[in-house]
Amino acid sequence: MRFGSAGRSAVAAAAVVGSLAVAGVVTFIASASDPAPSKPLPDTNVVVSPANGTQEATLGSRIEVKADGGRLTAVEAQDSEGHKVAGQLAEGGGSWTAQTKVKPQTTYTVRAVAKSDQGKESSSASTFTTQRPEKVNKVTISPSNGQTVGTGMPISILFDNPVDEDKRAEIEKALKVNAKPQAVGAWGWVKDYSGKDRLDYRTRTYWPSGTHVSVKGALAGIDSGKGGWFIRDYDFSFTVGTDRKAVIDVLAHTLTMFEYGKSVGTVKGSAGSLKYPTRGGVHTVRGKSAAEVMDSSTIGFGDEWKLPSQWVTYLTASGTFLHSAPWNNTIGQENSSHGCFGMTTEDAKTVYDFLPIGATVEVKGTSSTEKTDVGNGLEVWQETWDQWQQRSALK
């Protein structure tokens, strides 16, 4: 078939719009009406701080994750022991911040999922290690985990090393007390009888019997100042047992035991003399020992005596005890001790068995006007509630 010039022009035009075969390769040329080729959707730029691969991330920092060009949909951070790090996702998903500071000498892994503004989902992972602290501050806590205590028991945290005053508020904020039933309480900074810094928690009134108390301390990664860094968190609980108290009437030479407010027995004893009167106010039982030698040198009286005693109930750290005094022939008749309350061996055991650690012992009728310092044992009830609240760094 033969084509004229018009036919040849039509064939050429069709070839441009359609396809051209050159050496076995077929190339398609889009017409103006065909859709443009799609571009790949961009990923969200996820930035983790501290950066991936860091070997000495700064102590006291918090893990942060930020999303540029999109939003975070999920973030998971955990340490090398598998403990997850709680965090807060900002409104809109632009960032995520850990609720606690990083622990010293710990490796963390952070995984994040993000979605770009165009809807593309992407994920990223980051691993880093924190610095080793030059100095560590350890603590001793009472009551111990799982212990059953009396209604006057404070929570007491004794620090191995000093705590700078400007660091105390942050430490208080990191400690959470949960009581069932609920009870109003406050932390207070105390100088322990040993000279060490201490932080105690007492309630406005005594714990109700049966209260379950749990304490969580997110202290790891907090700087105590010249005393060093805390390297671990704390989680413990205790139960408040039977409501038991005692009242010493110095003038009547008696100790009366109360259970749920009702008298359940009275014993005779010998309190401090007029020269060495028994300390007044409300004391807290801080410990007990079935047998002990009463050594005068421990309370500033040299080598005057070393007397074996039994059923010793400790009140103050400076030496106010309830104990057996078999050497005393004036029990129930005269106050002749150096500040303790001495009893017969049988009565001392009755009191020893009756009072749990954390129970209160109130001393009435004493001639002593000396206020017992709060750190001289667990003497938190020597102050009013208003006075106690002034000890908090958050007041």
Rank of each mutant, 00 (worst) to 15 (best):
F128V: 11
K84T: 08
E91W: 09
A21D: 03
A90G: 15
A23C: 02
P35T: 04
V65F: 09
K84V: 05
Q55Y: 01
A125P: 07
P104R: 01
G24F: 03
A51Q: 10
T127N: 09
K115P: 00
A67F: 04
G60P: 01
V102T: 14
T109D: 07
G82R: 06
W96V: 02
A86T: 02
S33A: 14
Q55A: 08
H83Q: 15
K66F: 01
V47L: 08
G53W: 00
A32C: 09
T54P: 00
P40N: 02
Y108D: 08
V47E: 07
T127V: 12
A51R: 08
A74Q: 12
G24D: 12
L59W: 02
Y108A: 06
K39I: 08
S122R: 08
T107M: 09
G82T: 03
G69D: 01
A30T: 13
D79W: 11
G69H: 01
E81Y: 07
F128P: 13
T107L: 08
A36E: 13
I63D: 01
A77L: 04
V75M: 02
S80R: 09
T127L: 05
P104W: 03
K66P: 00
G24K: 06
T97C: 01
E56D: 03
Q78H: 13
T107W: 07
V48L: 05
A36W: 03
T54G: 01
V25P: 06
G24H: 06
A23I: 00
P50W: 02
S49R: 10
P40V: 03
E76H: 00
P42A: 10
D117T: 13
A57N: 04
N52I: 02
R111I: 03
L59G: 02
T58C: 02
A112R: 05
R62S: 06
D68I: 01
V75A: 03
S61M: 00
V110F: 06
V65Q: 03
R71W: 07
R111H: 06
F28N: 12
K101G: 13
Q99S: 08
T58R: 14
K115Q: 11
E134Q: 15
V25A: 15
E121N: 03
V75R: 02
V25Q: 15
R111S: 11
K115T: 10
E134R: 14
T27V: 15
V113L: 07
V75S: 01
E81R: 09
V47K: 10
T58E: 14
E64F: 00
A36T: 12
P104M: 05
V85D: 06
K84E: 12
Q131T: 09
V26Y: 13
A90Q: 13
K66A: 06
S49Q: 05
Q131V: 01
V110T: 04
V47F: 05
A57G: 04
T44I: 12
Q55H: 02
S49L: 10
T109W: 12
A74G: 06
